[in-house]
Simulated assay, not measured.
Amino acid sequence: MEKIKIGVVIELKSLRIYWLQLFVVLFLLPFSYLFIMFLSSGGNMNKNEVVSLLIGYMVVTLVSSFVNMLSLRITNTKQPEVLELYSTYSMTFPQIIVSQCITYTLLTLPLVIVVSLYAIISLQSVNVPLFITGTIIGISVLLLISIFLGLAMNNLFLANGLFQILFVIFVILSPSYFNMQSLNKVLKIFLIFNPITHMLNILRTPLKISSGFDIKWSYLYLFVLSILLVMFIARRIKNTYVLEKIF
């Protein structure tokens, strides 16, 4: 546990160099989508619509943070020269990955808490335990996706462009800022294959905001996806070693 704490401190200190990128990823990109949707609505929105948009904003911020930064950080960590730096702290590769996941989760935690509290207080008949469970599952699955992407890529420069494209695809092909019930069947099919759609469903359904399909299918989809991701991650981590420092 002490090694993981050291890893978190290292990550937080290293982020001071990338404060501008952090601002863009954590705030500017997600908020720009939210701002456009508020403008298009003309400000005429009921509480359910406002909460639905805020849940979408929260999820997009998580995706932006994890896919745009955490995945890239993991790809960077795999580079031999970076692993050699971590060897001075006698940290294993799994400990490094866990510390990075904790760091980026902590960065997004204040927003998650604020949006969640607003949603619970604003709406009536909220299933709080189910909502909290959905939040934990959503964050966990996003972390697994980010770890998978980070481990799957070896070229840091290629990963930088690819992860940004994936972020846009995740956001556009998900009902983050709109209701998918108004879409035609073809578009709905595309959205259903997107894991972000199912994360939104398990978060909005406990708030009595319908996404148009049963929450059970979302739990099943995310469960199967998590199993596949864990299998891949376990194999890749097993084959990655931190270089030992030669004294």
Rank of each mutant, 00 (worst) to 15 (best):
F157G: 02
P195N: 10
L142E: 06
A152Y: 15
R204Y: 04
I209S: 06
Q181I: 14
I215Y: 13
V224E: 00
L158M: 12
I120R: 11
L166G: 09
N155Q: 14
M153K: 12
L225K: 05
H198R: 01
L183D: 08
G161C: 03
F148S: 10
S146T: 02
G138D: 01
L162R: 09
L222P: 09
L207R: 02
F163E: 05
D214C: 03
V126N: 04
N201L: 06
L151C: 07
L222W: 06
I139Q: 04
K208H: 09
I169M: 13
N127T: 09
S122Q: 07
V171N: 00
N179V: 12
S174P: 09
V115T: 11
V168R: 00
A152T: 07
Y177K: 01
Q164C: 01
I120E: 09
K188T: 08
F178M: 06
N154D: 11
F193K: 06
I139V: 11
G150H: 12
I147G: 02
I139H: 02
N194R: 02
Y118N: 05
N194Q: 06
N127M: 13
P206T: 02
N154E: 13
P175C: 08
F163M: 15
Q181Y: 07
G134E: 13
S146C: 07
I192E: 11
Y219E: 00
N184Y: 07
K188W: 01
S210K: 14
S116P: 05
R204A: 08
I147M: 08
L225Y: 01
N127H: 15
N160C: 04
V141W: 07
V141C: 08
I192T: 13
N201G: 09
L144G: 11
F190G: 04
V141K: 03
Q124K: 15
L222R: 04
V171W: 01
P195E: 03
K185D: 13
G150P: 10
L151I: 04
L130G: 07
Q124W: 11
K208E: 03
A152N: 10
N155T: 13
F193W: 12
A159P: 02
V168A: 11
N154K: 04
V171I: 04
P206R: 06
F163W: 10
K216P: 01
N127K: 14
I139Y: 00
